[in-house]
Design a protein around this nucleic acid. Sequence first.
DNA 1: CATGAATGAGTTTTCATTCAT
DNA 2: AATGAATGAAAACTCATTCAT
Lengths: 202, 202, 202, 202
Amino acid sequence: MARTTKKEAILEAALALFAEKGVDAATTREIAERAGTSEGNLYRHFDGKDDLARTLFETTARRFADVLETEARDEDDPRARLDTLIRGVFTFAEDHPAAFSFLLASHPSHIPKDRDLRLGPYPMRLFVETIVRGVAQGAFRPVDPVLATGWIVAMAQRAVLLARMGLLADDRERITQETVEASRRLLAADPVGPGGQQPDDR
Amino acid sequence: MARTTKKEAILEAALALFAEKGVDAATTREIAERAGTSEGNLYRHFDGKDDLARTLFETTARRFADVLETEARDEDDPRARLDTLIRGVFTFAEDHPAAFSFLLASHPSHIPKDRDLRLGPYPMRLFVETIVRGVAQGAFRPVDPVLATGWIVAMAQRAVLLARMGLLADDRERITQETVEASRRLLAADPVGPGGQQPDDR
Amino acid sequence: MARTTKKEAILEAALALFAEKGVDAATTREIAERAGTSEGNLYRHFDGKDDLARTLFETTARRFADVLETEARDEDDPRARLDTLIRGVFTFAEDHPAAFSFLLASHPSHIPKDRDLRLGPYPMRLFVETIVRGVAQGAFRPVDPVLATGWIVAMAQRAVLLARMGLLADDRERITQETVEASRRLLAADPVGPGGQQPDDR
Amino acid sequence: MARTTKKEAILEAALALFAEKGVDAATTREIAERAGTSEGNLYRHFDGKDDLARTLFETTARRFADVLETEARDEDDPRARLDTLIRGVFTFAEDHPAAFSFLLASHPSHIPKDRDLRLGPYPMRLFVETIVRGVAQGAFRPVDPVLATGWIVAMAQRAVLLARMGLLADDRERITQETVEASRRLLAADPVGPGGQQPDDR
DNA sequence: CATGAATGAGTTTTCATTCAT
DNA sequence: AATGAATGAAAACTCATTCAT
């Protein structure tokens, strides 16, 4: 308590409740209660519930991006960098479970239009850039980098979700490894000479 | 009156609105209005909004599973069968866009607990079974079939989402092909000989 | 079923529900359901819920009066007659529990104004007349007959209520006797000279 | 605002309306209106209409008991004490007419189960205790004290009711006296020798 | 800053009654 | 007669937001 200001307490409470039951289902009263303050005070710090949600979306997405960026900072090789980014998703999900749920669970209609990519542009962008570079360098096979990013991020998110639901036998580290490995296979440049595996429309 | 009973009209209206704005944000009044009936009548047919959501989740998930099952009925080879299932996701998304959105967008807390897999057990199960068989036959590399199903379904869903948002340059057929191809790579059995990719080299 | 017409079934169902939860809380739907018919049909036989309640109040009050009248028909002596009337209340309460509850539980504001006496004028009148006669003959001490009727009827009703609630140790017959005895004491003419009315001369 | 808080205003308005038309027939809107506040505010202070009714039942029953207790505090002799308690019923009915009506009119199904005695255990208990003591001391004839309490309380209530309806010629004081006198006769120990009055089991 | 009572515009829900069949 | 879908009006209840203190 000592350190955390009321404003932070409100943000924290709101994030937890938004993650748990969705923005619509969470009431300002609950939020205030959980934050140990009054409803009125919530309005001193924020413009309202929507503002709270928007603020949280922004800061959460940015924090997510920061985690990824920090972890991947040193990696230069696209393959290694991508691995790290994926691991970052799992790390973030573990370290900030409410934030992770909130980002995932927000109904599309709640998400600000210009950062539509479900996870916000910030985190996505790092993936996209890495893949673009990897393709250019021949480290990855040629694919639409946005599509590939979508695949990989979705895979990681779903893996977290399934793990949380207790539907996976393996432990988190193993699941992370598997998912990293899977993404490698997804993007691996085809071996041998030219004429490799076109997506070969069957 | 005509052919479609009011009950069906209500279901249809609710599905559209739930998909568009989420269960919480859709009001019973809107639903009734859109269904061309009275709010009271809605309560004659359903126990309330939650019941409506539950019913829709169930029937929609089942319809999804039926589409997949029908399309994959003739395929026996796990690889071909998996391809078909993935294509089925895209087909369903195109043919029943509201149902698809609704299944995706439902907040986890709205989803009946025992069919938690986001898409309900019905559709998921078909994937899991196919992968289990494929692994047994050596057609796929050994992976946790639930995890692999999660990956693949999530990839397909995200691809649909990105396409809907207009973030992908390719047309739908091409995106479908790409996603099918990606899943093949994900599960491809390793080339017998030594030097195979262990998932955990790192 | 065979014999009882739907109309009777409706009356019976309504009486039971009115007694159980009150007129307001009972819904026409419940009534129809319990009567094994449809809501619409209820409106063929009655003008609505209020009409049903009014009809039931009337017939039930009359039936009550009939029971009392029948039992007391042969008694001519005011004392004996009053005893019999009181016993009649207990008899009616036992034979027609729903009717009895309904008559008691109706909120004053539901009771037709001109038969205000809680049990309707019919049953009350028999008591009043008997007491008037008893007073005139010197069998009872001089009291306001309406007030005395109120006392006695209220006593009997309360006794039934307490018995139903299981708050009384004695059996029904004993409670009846006690209440009859109590009413005798209430009205016993004072012993004037010697040889006066012991409360229990009978 | 003034002195009386809104919460009290709500309780007061609800009590008046509940007494007048019954709990079911009174609407939250009316209550709020009459209390000079908004419906929403009613729900800030109470969980709903039922909670309001429950609260009122409790506080009203307790206030009733308090009145009785206060008035009877100094009386030690069972007979005098019982007289005072009966007078207390009339006093309470006059001073708190709405509370009195509400206690009487509540449909049994609204009454909390463990204080079923129509007037709540609180007021009843004082009567029961007094009668038990009086019987033990030989001041009253032997009767089931709960039954006797029922009789007497019911008599007093009915007397008030009849008076309110204008069906009694006498004034309130006279009616009170008569009812007190009646209760004395009800419980008077039989004179003379042993082998006193059995209720003459016929 | 902070509180929590108060508001009002909504929402969900109920139900007596009507109506097409 | 009978059904049960449909209605509309009103009920209970919710909740983001404001306001006096």
